[in-house]
């Protein structure tokens, strides 16, 4: 046997690798904290895809016209596919999909807060596809650089598909914005509802806590929450205005000096409340997922029994 490698050596080597921009693969040595952070992050991301099917999926039966109905089903199906891909990435770190799902349904795991808001109109479908997915892509483009290989690769594929969702969302919003007065009112209402929840998506302001610093050091994340949010705002504001729609922020203005849009911060107290379960749709979302999970239990059990039978 070679001389014993101390824990400090291992950590130092790991940090050097990561600093060089190398990818960490599932079989590689990694600090426990790194593994835990990634399981939590990827699991939350997977849950977000699965729960995120619901607010838009609600509108599938009502989608107007063949084209919209087909693209909406395809989009919500993509979210399921992303969930599948992400659970698989998290499973490489040693936690099963079933375990992760049980945690979600028990209310022990988090998912993207934005999906705890309701979708009362058809226009919400367009605004989610455009704004929510744009904010998500800005974050996920950053995550393509993450140090954990399976997550980075999953992000590449997911961003590629999300780019179509953004186009479809934009097309829907633009169509309504140029439509009848009812259609215009519908889409403006949706922008008003979703503006602040989408700003919250990149997370609370960075206080550069130990946690954030550690994530940056290990290149789990490569940008701060504020950087990600600013990128989203700079991208989306001119596009929304170009459609003749307004953004519900009177203080929104372009700052020539910094070349960024300055905006009003969302209500971070609201984020806390909603994350902790007290949002408009938290209970409903989990209740729906729990029912689907329970209703489908016999199918999963039957398929597992059959697999055993075939293997025997």
């Amino acid at each position: 046997m070679n001389s014993q490698v101390t824990a400090e050596d291992q950590l130092a080597r790991f940090e050097e690798r990561v600093a060089r921009g190398e990818k960490v693969e599932p079989g590689d040595w990694m600090p426990d904290e790194y593994r835990k952070s990634l399981i939590r992050m990827i699991g939350q991301h997977a849950h977000s895809e699965i729960v995120g099917q619901l607010p838009e999926g609600k509108w599938i039966p009502y989608a107007p016209g063949f084209r919209r109905k087909l693209t909406l089903i395809a989009k919500v199906q993509d979210e399921a596919g992303h969930g599948q891909l992400l659970y698989r990435a998290a499973e490489t770190l040693g936690k099963s999909r079933e375990e992760m799902l049980e945690e979600l349904l028990a209310g022990k795991a988090k998912y993207a807060n934005v999906f705890n808001y309701p979708t009362p109109s058809w226009a919400d479908v367009g605004v989610i596809g455009w704004l929510v997915d744009m904010a998500a892509v800005v974050n996920q483009t950053m995550l393509q650089q993450t140090s954990f290989g399976p997550y980075a690769r999953a992000m590449k594929r997911i961003c590629y598909e999300e780019s179509f969702h953004i186009k479809q969302g934009y097309d829907l919003v633009a169509t309504l914005a140029k439509g009848t007065p009812e259609q215009k009112a519908m889409v403006q209402g949706a922008i008003d509802r979703w503006w602040y929840p989408t700003l919250m998506m990149s997370g609370p302001p960075d206080n550069l806590s130990a946690h954030t610093l550690q994530s940056l050091k290990w290149r789990i994340k490569t940008k701060t929450n504020e950087q990600v949010r600013q990128e989203y705002v700079d991208l989306i504001v001119p596009q929304i205005r170009a459609l003749g729609l307004t953004i519900p922020d009177r203080d929104l203005k372009y700052d020539e000096k910094s070349e960024h849009w300055s905006y009003t911060q969302p209500d971070w107290e609201e984020l806390k409340r909603v994350v902790n379960g007290d949002g408009p749709m938290n209970k409903e979302r989990l209740a729906v997922r729990r029912k689907a999970h329970e209703d489908g239990r016999w199918v999963r059990e039957a398929l597992a029994a059959k697999r055993k039978e075939v293997a025997a």
Binding site: G57, I73, A74, Q77, Q84
Partner: peptide, 27 residues
């Protein structure tokens, strides 16, 4: 398509969403 988001497992969610799109495409 009423199964999209509600199927017993993710693989069937994807399958029935796919079939729904095919049937609508045939229509």
């Amino acid at each position: 398509a009423e199964w999209t988001g509600y199927a017993p497992l993710i693989e069937e969610d994807i399958a029935f969403s796919n079939i729904a799109q095919d049937e609508l495409g045939h229509s």
